[in-house]
Simulated scan of single mutants.
Amino acid sequence: MSQVQKRSRPTALAVWLVLAGAVGWWAAFSLTMERLHLLADPDAIASCDFSPLVQCTANLQSWQGSVFGFPNPILGLTGWVAPIVVGMAILAGARFGRWFWLLFELGLTFAFVFVIWLIGQSIFVLGTLCPWCMVTWIVTIPTYYVVTLHVLRTGLLPAPAAVRRGAGTLMGWVPLLAVVSYAIVAILAQVRLDILGALF
C-alpha cells in the first residue's frame, strides 16, 4: 500500500489558495504601482503613507525592499499566481504528483521565511509598518500553514504516522494558529514601536 494516503479533493484548501492568492496578488500589484509612482516622482507621497510609523515609502525605497536587485513586489506579482492556479486546478478536478506538491511546498517555505525576515526588518530595522506589506504577511502565514499540514497529513512529505495524524488534527486549528502568529507580530511591533502610543 502506498504511503501517500488517498484523499478526496481538498476543496477547502483549493478555495483558500484562490482567495489568498488573489489578495496577495492585489497587495503586490498595489505596492508595484506605488513603487512606479515614486520612481516617476521621487517627491511624491504614496497613498499608503499615513504617518512616519505606518507607510510604504520607507520600505519600498530601502535596500530591504529590493533584496534581489528589483522591487520585492515583483516577486509577489509572479509568486501569487501559483496558489491561484493550483487552487483553480484542484477545483477543476486536477490531481498533482508528489514532486509537484513538494516543489509547491518549497516555494511557500521560501515565501514564509522571506516574510518572517521582512517582518523583522520592518519592525526592528526600518521602524515602519507598510500597510500592503502587512496584507501580504496576513495571507502568506496561513497559506504556508495549510499547505505544509496538507503535505504532511497526506504523506506527500514523508513523516511518521503520528505526525500525519497530528497534521490532520492541526488543519482545523489553522485559523487559531494564524491569529496567534499575528498576535506575536503585533506584540513585537508594540514593544519595539509603541504603536498604541503613536496612535493615542
Rank of each mutant, 00 (worst) to 15 (best):
L39D: 11
V139N: 00
A161L: 05
R164L: 03
H150V: 01
P71M: 10
A198V: 07
L126F: 09
L193H: 00
V85N: 04
Q3E: 14
D194T: 09
L36Y: 02
L36H: 02
P42Q: 02
L103A: 14
L17P: 00
L103F: 06
R164N: 09
L17Y: 00
M134L: 10
L60V: 07
V146K: 00
F114P: 01
L152W: 02
W173G: 06
L199F: 11
L91A: 14
A167C: 02
A161S: 14
M171I: 13
Q55V: 02
V4F: 07
W132D: 00
W101Q: 09
T154N: 14
L53F: 11
L31C: 08
L108Y: 04
E34S: 12
W117P: 05
L149Y: 06
W26N: 10
R35W: 03
K6E: 09
T140E: 02
I138D: 05
W99R: 12
T109W: 11
G155E: 07
L17M: 15
H37A: 08
A89K: 08
N59T: 09
W80E: 01
S66N: 11
R192S: 12
T128S: 09
A162N: 10
H150L: 11
G21N: 06
V23R: 04
A178N: 05
L170R: 15
L31V: 09
M1A: 09
P52R: 09
M171D: 13
Q121S: 15
V113Y: 07
A44K: 09
W26C: 14
W63Q: 05
L196I: 10
L60F: 12
S122V: 01
V139K: 00
P142A: 15
L188E: 09
V147Q: 04
F110A: 10
L188D: 08
F50P: 10
